[in-house]
């Protein structure tokens, strides 16, 4: 597998009335061809801001202050808004949480797909565009594409709408599909259908996927690799099996432990005490130190280095340092 996207030491700041939020604090990760990377983290951990930087969709008060985003060697961080417009929708596409707000309620769905083609595929004739739109509608598992082409979003169910959003995103065969909580607004039975569809499509059209989610069940279902974010940093990255079975970082361990299991019945759940750090004034040491059960003096003073656990499994935790070996378990 070859490397498609490489994010290096990305640092993003957001200016607010109350001060500067260090939303993303030096993260590095990569995405290979045809793989699915899940980014996990809670609200405010910086996961959405990270992918919005890749898409060039940061809010006006947000800015990339350091780092590079290399798409097949080209640095997107240095691209102008105009240059980004040609990347968005054709090289990288994004789907959002709420399908109702990402579709135009006053436009038939067929036209919404054709719009993307008009923007990026000037070589196509009108008839070809319509044909392509119909093809996409059936590709995402919607039956009777001719009739659906002329329908408005409100005539479709939530699951159907998300399928349309996916069809729009795939219109120009993007290399990378970024899905920001694509199933959070959907019911579980519909969520299962959409996850199935995404896996199926990936096989068919050979795109790479970055999925943002807070649901570890979804991660286990769809991801090849996982990146866990906390307090604006990547605290652990690993293959999906390593992340679940060889968990290295105490935060990831805490997340996994807080999911109710059959054996927890009748007893307390293992909660992570406290709340995430304020990124207006990020802690100078490890962002998780205040909530960690194994905090050492060094954790509060110095940010942990990115350490290699095994193979490609990496984590930022002082416990992985040789000198802390005795404290690990």
């Amino acid at each position: 597998m070859s490397r498609l996207l490489e994010v290096n030491q990305l640092r993003v700041q957001i200016e607010t009335q109350h001060g500067t939020v260090q939303a993303v604090r030096g993260i590095s990760f990569h995405l290979d061809e045809q793989e699915t990377l899940a980014i996990v983290g809670e609200s405010g951990s910086g996961k959405s801001i990270s992918v919005k930087s890749i898409m060039g969709l940061l809010p006006k008060n947000g800015k990339i202050v350091e780092g590079s985003i290399l798409l097949e060697g080209k640095d997107l961080a240095k691209y102008s808004e105009r240059q980004m417009q040609s990347v968005r929708g054709s090289d990288i596409s994004m789907i959002f949480q709420d399908p109702m707000t990402s579709l135009n309620p006053t436009m038939i769905i067929g036209k919404q797909i054709v719009e993307v083609l008009k923007e990026h595929r000037r070589d196509m004739t009108k008839a070809q565009m319509k044909e392509r739109a119909l093809e996409l509608i059936s590709l995402v598992g919607i039956s009777n594409p001719e009739a659906r082409f002329d329908q408005y979003p409100h005539q479709l169910s939530g699951g159907m709408r998300q399928r349309v959003v996916i069809a729009v995103a795939l219109a120009c065969d993007p290399r990378i599909l970024i899905a920001d909580e694509p199933t959070t607004a959907l019911d579980v039975t519909i969520q299962a259908q959409i996850l199935d569809l995404m896996r199926d499509l990936q096989k068919k059209i050979k795109t790479s996927i970055i999925i943002i989610t807070h649901n570890l069940g979804v991660v286990a279902n769809i991801a090849d690799r996982v990146a866990v974010m906390y307090g604006g940093q990547l605290v652990e990255t690993a293959d999906v099996r390593d992340l679940f079975y060889e968990t290295a970082h105490p935060y990831t361990k805490g997340l996994l432990a807080s999911i109710p299991k059959a054996s927890d019945k009748g007893s307390d759940l293992t909660a992570i005490p406290g709340t995430p750090p304020d990124l207006m004034e990020p802690p100078k040491g490890c962002p998780f130190a205040a909530r960690c059960t194994k905090t050492m003096e060094v954790c509060r003073q110095y940010p942990p280095k990115d350490m290699l656990c095994r193979g490609t499994h990496r984590a930022r935790c002082w416990l992985l340092d040789e000198r802390a070996k005795a404290l690990r378990e």
């Binding site: 649901n215 570890l216 069940g217 286990a220 279902n221």
Partner: peptide, 23 residues
Amino acid sequence: SAIPIPDPDVEKSRNRIMLEGSL
């Protein structure tokens, strides 16, 4: 059967009952 289980091995070997259509 639609609930995703946070365990990759279990998820890969599960047989889902896929409901057709929506509400």
